[in-house]
Amino acid sequence: MRLAYILCIAALCPAQDVTPVADHSGDAETGRWTFRIFCAPCHGIRADGGRGPDLTLGTYSAGDRDEDLARVISRGVPGTEMAAYAGRVSDEEIRRLVAYIRSVAHTSDNTSIRGDIAAGETIFWNKGGCGQCHRTGTKGSSIGPDLTRVGRQRSLAYLRASLLQPDADVTPGYATVTVVTRDGKKIVGVERNFDNFSAQFVDLSGKYYSFEREDVISMKREPRSLMPSTYGQVLNETEVNDLLAFLSSLRGGR
């Protein structure tokens, strides 16, 4: 049934690229409620993104046609956090979800970033020092999260919050670990593993540590980031926008 629906749309409407599905009255509103149940935990209660991409931009990673959206909802995106909802959400509901997503396209101010991508890239590797911890493609460091596809994965608002208030939402697996050794030395780093009996982490020079709890005075993991929280002061508004424009342009394949 699902396949038939997709094939049908593909066959009948090959040229219908970004035109919304005819919005039968109430479809978008019904879709909004379904969206809140299944999609909001990652894409935000207003669809403007979070850990999942911002869906109000009006352009989507896996294709901009209605059938692309339906396919992604139905089958998920392998290799990402986007799960397949076929079986959990009916084809009819998927159609309404698409109607809702269309209805919120271009409603946020997330598209209004006016930044210079090239200037942002320069800031990333030089003044910002971002590459000391982050990687894009094969360049940079792997202490913090890989940013190769971050423009697809995170909304602009989320990126702005992450840049200016790094503690706002720490990516799971990248918390701050602090160990005090028996000789009183305090070692701080970014989590690789942390469990009830041991900690593995890398410090900001990239050095790897592994400790068992009984061999140290204390070990703790905190949901805060080791990323500097001073970018709001270090960079001026233009530089922040340039950097965000660069980050938004990171869509893999570099």
Binding site: T30, W33, R36, I37, A40, C42, I45, G50, S90, D169
Partner: peptide, 20 residues
């Protein structure tokens, strides 16, 4: 979060969502 949801027999019927 509270949400509206129409009842369809055999389908997910929770009318809700939770934050991260």
């Amino acid at each position: 979060y509270r949400t509206k949801q129409a009842f369809v027999e055999g389908q997910w019927y929770q009318a809700s969502t939770i934050g991260r």
